[in-house]
Simulated assay, not measured.
Amino acid sequence: MHLQDKVIIVTGGGQGLGRAMGEYLASKGARLALVDLNQERLDEAVAACKAGGGEARAYLCNVANEEQVSDMVTRVAEDFGGLHGLVNNAGILRDGLLLKVKDGEISKMSLAQWQAVIDVNLTGVFLCTR
């Protein structure tokens, strides 16, 4: 796959797998829009991608927020002059068990925790892809 000068958005690009994918894409000459909620980690990831030979910029955005996603995509297209690809990597975990029993105590995942996971992991993918 030819990635030289391709503009790619990487959600969750400030940390973990997103950052690693960004660094890989940068090494292939991609121009990256790294998206995350943590500015400090975004800045570190941008620096790492630039050190790897690519162009990268940071965008703060909650992928579960339709207006923020729309604004982010518009800014990326304006900043880079287009868009060629998307790595939908952003994702969150909450207590992974719906019901947990530990030392005789029962705890349940709250509806708010469940909804946060659905909002980022599913709705965020929908919004960014659309």
Results as ranks from 00 to 15, higher is better:
Glu44Phe: 01
Gly54Glu: 02
Leu83Tyr: 03
Gly96Pro: 12
Leu99Asp: 02
Ala56Ile: 10
Leu98Pro: 02
Leu3His: 05
Asn88Cys: 09
Val117Met: 04
Gly85Asp: 03
Gly18Arg: 01
Cys61Trp: 03
Leu32Phe: 01
Cys128Lys: 02
His84Cys: 06
Ser27Gly: 15
Gln68Met: 12
Ala64His: 10
Tyr59Cys: 10
Tyr59Lys: 04
Leu86Met: 06
Ile8Lys: 00
Leu17Asp: 06
Gln39His: 07
Phe80Cys: 11
Leu42Gln: 11
Ala56Asn: 05
Leu86Asn: 01
Gly18Asn: 02
Val63Phe: 03
Asn38Gln: 11
Met72Tyr: 06
Ala33Thr: 10
Val87Ile: 14
Lys108Arg: 11
His84Asp: 15
Val63Asn: 08
Gly85Arg: 08
Ile118Glu: 12
Arg57Glu: 15
Glu40His: 09
Gly13Arg: 01
Lys108Cys: 10
Arg31His: 08
Gly18Asp: 07
Leu122Asp: 05
Trp114Leu: 15
Ala116Ile: 05
Val35Phe: 11
Val87Met: 09
Val101Cys: 09
Asn88Ile: 01
Ile92Pro: 11
Arg130Thr: 10
Val35Tyr: 09
Gly22Leu: 00
Leu127Ala: 06
Leu83Val: 11
Lys100Cys: 09
Leu99Ile: 15
Thr123Glu: 09
Leu98Val: 13
Gly29Gln: 10
Val10Glu: 02
His84Val: 07
Glu105Trp: 00
Leu122Gln: 13
Gly91Trp: 07
Ala26Phe: 06
Glu40Phe: 03
Leu25Ile: 00
Glu44Leu: 14
Thr123Cys: 03
Thr129Val: 04
Lys102Ser: 13
